[in-house]
Design a binder for these strands. Structure first.
Lengths: 210, 210
DNA sequence: CTACAAAACGACCGACCGTTCGTAAATATT
DNA sequence: AATATTTACGAACGGTCGGTCGTTTTGTAG
């Protein structure tokens, strides 16, 4: 929020806190997020954080929202510029991998980490992550359905196909730091390409893809 | 370890501790594992744990080994009873899913959870998990290679295929608690079956599979 | 310049953590 | 039965955590 062109004092720190908190939460876990560490890393006092968020959980939820907005801007929107159909589905997969290749920032995917972390821990956080995952899978399924309706695919259920795309993306960001970015991302791209080639009606559509 | 047919006193508690610790670590995270909680859940004193493991990290490493042994007995060995080739590759996928369907125990897959948790946290734990993952992928790749050498598959790189199998398994145990076991496992099975059908030379091999 | 409101601060609290240590109980040995 | 040795125990320590509160600093308006 801006007033007269200048940043309100608290607003600048607000986004700075969310950036730092997202970074730390991605590395140490959303639950392992330490308010003390966030404050120290920014050179502000820990108690000052409670002026913006009433509790740690409130900050955690804000971090989730922050990550969601970032994901929308940097992955979903660019992918939607590709032509609808199989190529758009591939574009999303490619953008996702590129998103993690670009930033050498450690910690992998915040959402994947958080989902695994809260897999068996019911509560507000778990519910919020569940809604995000539901929306994301619905979006992927819609893309797969569009590809089928376009006549690009044959004999394919959109659900399992969306699940396959998601699986390759999730597993890639998990294995990349351990087994090496090069081989992991190559496998993730190659596996989906092989699959699409096998189920696409007109393979020439895929010729331009790497 | 047994002496004269009777359990040494400490040994019974040792495996009980590892079972409980594995359960808690799967839910709360390997780093979120609390020695106090382990001791309380078993009705033993916290300080007594240090007689068996010199530190929390030592117990964490023992838990990893415990999980590995369990995984070998309940997933790998049964799958190896299937005939070599595509059917054995499918059997492993199926056994893995059945392993998590059978135990309604919450927390998903310990190894997946731990890998994501320590993705960006170098150290002894990270190294140990990395070796496990490396071995596991090598095993999967060997199964895929066998399927190719058997003549079951066409135009397929074993590496990406192994990566695909692993991806579907990992993602299934991540989504199952959130989106429901039924739809998630169905998608995980269907996606691999579709893929195998598309790349198998003799589809009749897959007829018997669900 | 003064006065007011918002925001950041530092000190502090209770809770939980991993770890250590002296002691008591349980087992093994003579 | 008495001794020696292993094993588990409870209390306590230092440290970090999330959260609270009174004070001081900062920015704004009259």
């Amino acid at each position: 929020m801006t007033v007269d062109g200048r940043l309100v004092r608290g607003e600048r720190t607000r986004t700075a806190v969310l950036d730092q908190a997202l970074r730390l939460a991605t590395v140490n876990g959303l639950d392992g997020l330490s308010l003390s560490q966030v404050a120290d890393a920014l050179g502000v006092s820990k108690s000052g954080l409670f002026a913006h968020w009433r509790s740690k959980q409130a900050l955690q939820l804000a971090v989730i929202e922050h990550a969601r907005a970032q994901w929308t801007d940097e992955v979903i929107k660019p992918a939607l510029r590709s032509p609808r159909g199989v190529r758009r589905l591939w574009a999303l997969h490619d953008r996702r991998l590129a998103f993690y290749e670009a930033r050498v920032l450690p910690g992998g995917c915040f959402f994947a980490n958080a989902n695994f972390e809260f897999n068996a821990r019911p509560g507000v956080i778990r519910d919020r992550l569940g809604v995000q995952l539901d929306d994301w899978m619905a979006f992927l399924t819609r893309l797969a359905t569009e590809a089928v309706e376009n006549g690009d695919l044959r004999r394919v259920d959109p659900g399992p196909l969306a699940f396959l795309v998601e699986s390759l993306g999730v597993c890639a960001v998990m294995q990349a730091p351990v087994l090496g970015h090069d081989v992991t991302f190559r496998h993730a791209r190659r596996a989906l390409l092989d699959h699409l080639r096998a189920v696409t009606t007109d393979p020439s559509i895929l010729a331009e893809l790497s």
